[in-house]
C-alpha cells in the first residue's frame, strides 16, 4: 500500500500550501519560454514540459542579487547589508536533474564560506520532484549515473500513475514530510501502478572520460581546439546549467551611493579571466571550453567527490552552434586515456 495524490486534488493542495504561507512554484510555460514560476492554482502548472528552458538554479542563486548598499557623505561612509529572503516555498514538479543539481552545488556554497543566500533559500524550500516518464534527445542523466527518478536533492519524489490520474508519493526528508502533513487528508491509500520511467540511453562512458581528463598530458591536447572551434562564447550553456555557479560582483551607482550586486558570470566569456593588465590566461575559446569540462569532471569532483553535471542536457539543447557536454564527452570516451 502506498500513498497516492490524485491530480484533481492538486488545486486543494496548492490552496492549503498557500494558506500555510508557502509560495508555490512549478513548471510553467509562458508565451515561448518555460521556467519554474510561481503558481496560484493547479491549472497554472504545465507538467507536459520535458524540462523547463531555465533551470531551477535561479530560484536559489538568482541572476542578480543585491548584497550590500553604500552611501558616501563628506565625512562618513555607511553600508547596509541585504539579508537573504526568508520566504518559505514549495517547488512542485521539479525534475530529478534539477533537484540533483542543487545537491551538487551545496558543498560548493558551503565550503570555505557559507553562502547564507543559498542556504537560507535551500532550508526554506521544499522540493517535490516528479519522476520523468518522457525524455527528449538531449536528456542524459543516466550518463551521469543518475536516473529519471533520482532522489538526490529532493524532499519528496512523486511517480506518475500508469492511469495518468495522479502520483505515488515517496516522502524522503523531514522537510518533505512536514509539507505533506498539510495535505495528509487529501492523500489516498492505493495500489495503483506507476507509469514506466522515461528511457534515457547512456551516451558516453563517464569513467573513461574522467580517466582521460585526469591525465595531465591531455591538458594541452589538440582535441580541445578541434572540439570547440565553433563555440561563439555566448555563455548560454553556463547560464542555463543547473550546476554552473560562477558569479561576479558589480557596483551599480555613483560615487555617492549604490548597490553591490552578485551577478551570474560565465567561464565562456573572454572577460571572465581578463586581468587588469590586459593579459588573459584563458585567451582562446578552446581554453575556456576546456575549463568548463575540466571543472565539471575533474576539478570539482576532485574537491567535492561529485561531478558538477546532472545530465539535464540544456547545454546541448540550447547551444546556438549545437555543441555541449554530450558531444565533447562522447568524443573523449573514444580517446586513449
Amino acid at each position: 500500500m502506498t500513498r497516492i495524490l490524485l491530480s484533481d486534488k492538486l488545486d486543494n493542495c496548492v490552496a492549503r500550501w498557500r494558506k500555510a504561507g508557502l509560495t508555490v512554484i512549478g513548471p510553467v510555460k509562458k508565451e515561448t519560454s518555460s521556467s519554474y514560476a510561481t503558481v496560484e492554482k493547479a491549472a497554472d502548472f504545465d507538467f507536459g514540459i520535458v524540462l523547463p528552458d531555465r533551470s531551477i538554479k535561479g530560484l536559489f542563486f538568482p541572476q542578480t542579487e543585491p548584497m550590500m548598499g553604500y552611501t558616501i557623505k563628506k565625512q562618513d561612509i555607511a553600508t547596509n547589508d541585504f539579508a537573504p529572503p526568508t520566504e518559505k516555498r514549495i517547488i512542485f514538479g521539479a525534475r530529478s536533474c534539477d533537484a540533483s543539481g542543487l545537491a551538487i552545488d551545496d558543498p560548493l556554497f558551503g565550503w570555505d564560506y557559507k553562502d547564507d543566500f543559498w542556504f537560507q533559500r535551500r532550508n526554506e524550500t521544499v522540493i517535490v520532484t516528479i519522476a520523468c516518464t518522457k525524455a527528449d534527445d538531449f536528456c542524459m542523466c543516466t550518463s551521469l549515473k543518475l536516473a529519471p527518478d533520482s532522489t538526490k536533492g529532493s524532499d519528496v519524489l512523486l511517480r506518475p500513475l500508469q492511469n495518468n490520474k495522479g502520483w505515488l508519493v515517496e516522502e524522503l526528508t523531514d522537510r518533505g514530510r512536514e509539507a505533506f502533513k498539510e495535505i495528509a487528508d487529501l492523500l489516498l491509500d492505493g495500489s495503483e501502478q506507476a507509469a514506466p520511467l522515461a528511457v534515457v540511453p547512456e551516451k558516453f562512458n563517464l569513467d573513461a572520460c574522467v580517466a582521460w581528463l585526469k591525465n595531465p598530458e591531455n591538458f594541452d591536447s589538440t582535441f580541445w581546439k578541434e572540439i570547440s572551434m565553433r563555440c561563439i562564447g555566448c555563455g548560454s550553456c553556463t547560464f542555463l546549467c543547473p550546476t554552473c555557479h560562477c558569479f561576479d560582483f558589480q557596483d551599480e551607482g555613483d560615487t555617492y551611493s549604490g548597490i553591490r550586486r552578485k551577478n551570474w558570470d560565465s567561464c565562456s566569456f573572454s572577460l571572465f579571466t581578463m586581468h587588469t593588465s590586459g593579459h588573459n590566461p584563458r585567451s582562446t575559446q578552446s581554453a575556456r571550453w576546456r575549463q568548463r569540462i575540466m571543472h565539471k569532471f575533474n576539478y570539482f569532483p576532485g574537491k567535492f567527490s561529485v561531478n558538477s553535471c546532472s545530465g539535464c542536457g540544456r547545454c546541448t539543447r540550447q547551444c546556438p552552434v549545437d555543441m555541449g557536454i554530450t558531444e565533447t564527452l562522447q568524443a573523449i570516451s573514444t580517446l586513449k586515456p
Partner: peptide, 22 residues
C-alpha cells in the same frame, strides 16, 4: 519580454555585426 532576459549576451555573440572585442 525583457523580464525574461538573463543577460547572457548570446544575441550579441551570435551576431556577425557585433564584432567588438570589448
Amino acid at each position: 519580454e525583457f523580464s525574461r532576459c538573463i543577460k547572457c549576451y548570446a544575441c550579441r555573440q551570435a551576431c556577425p555585426m557585433c564584432y567588438c572585442r570589448r
